[in-house]
Design a protein around this nucleic acid. Structure first.
Lengths: 158, 158
DNA sequence: ATTTTAGTTCTGTATACCGAGAACTAAAAA
DNA sequence: TTTTTAGTTCTCGGTATACAGAACTAAAAT
């Protein structure tokens, strides 16, 4: 394993720091978070196992486990370059559209549960039931509108 | 502390179970998650400390800490009833609108960081930069559209 | 004045998670 | 065939979290 630490400017380093923190706040543990951040900031968007390891200064096991975690959750993807043995990894922001869709689906499941709950609630807690219903309505409305909104954006930007 | 366990039907119990799991998946630990779920499913939307404790069958400390956690993160609210000493707690879904706004603001911060990152990226990684830019554009578009969308929903529903 | 209520805070334990380091493995290179 | 590469898996120590139970506290009730 050649030490293939990537050169980073101070600016890039602080950006990785910040982006890492943002990823941590959204639920990742430190190493995966910094890995994602590095793959967004580094000049080359495709980095190898040992570049990631050496640049972040972490152990092989941490690198391996984090990479696999991020592959399984669809946050990064693997690409192989012709004739090269090493795998390269890339931040999967390219697929942000799917991500938004997925978030929305999870929201949908949550709201479905809320609908079931609302159905069996007593009718006398008017204000509470009302709020529940409003939220359900709005989320369902949003889910109907999103495709249209998406189209509007697409046409508006050319 | 009188044992003021609330009566729940089997159906309500399984709904609490499910809603609890949904809350757990969104980042809460078991007790706070079940507490929120109970406060959504129970007939009476306002429950006291000891009702929560007795119904969920948990310790006083767990109850106290969870309540305070949920108060601090704005997931429940406290209400006092005239002449009563005990505090009552209520699930704060009533304020779902603020929640959506907050989620959006967090998204905004994330995207701001991405903008800074994009600015300092080399120009030659065309595809990657393009994706980054697209996502930034879409999120910003969404943030502009949301108020309008909200108005559209409001007028459409009366 | 003392007792009860409605909690909070402290202490202890069990468990989970993180990440390092070393041992291991399968494929490719030499 | 052996050696190197590119990782994976195992073991371990440190730290954080979650919750129970007990001790504590301030206000209210008696």
């Amino acid at each position: 394993m050649t030490k293939s630490k990537i050169k980073l400017t101070d600016n890039q380093k602080t950006l990785i720091e910040k982006m890492g923190m943002a990823y941590e706040q959204s639920g990742f543990s430190p190493v995966p978070a910094r890995l994602l951040a590095l793959l967004m900031v580094a000049e080359d968007p495709d980095l190898t196992f040992d570049q990631l390891q050496a640049t972040l200064g972490i152990s092989k096991s941490a690198t391996s486990n984090s990479i696999n975690l991020l592959l399984n959750t669809g946050k990064i993807e693997q690409i192989s370059k012709l004739g090269e043995r090493k795998r390269y990894f890339r931040n999967r922001i390219v697929h942000w559209k799917e991500d938004i869709k997925k978030t929305n689906e999870r929201m949908g499941l949550f709201v479905d549960l809320m609908k079931t709950i609302l159905k069996q609630r007593p009718g006398d807690t008017v204000e509470f039931n009302q709020s529940l219903k409003e939220m359900i309505d709005f989320v369902e409305f949003l889910q109907r509108e999103l495709p249209l909104l998406y189209k509007k954006w697409e046409t508006g930007r050319k």
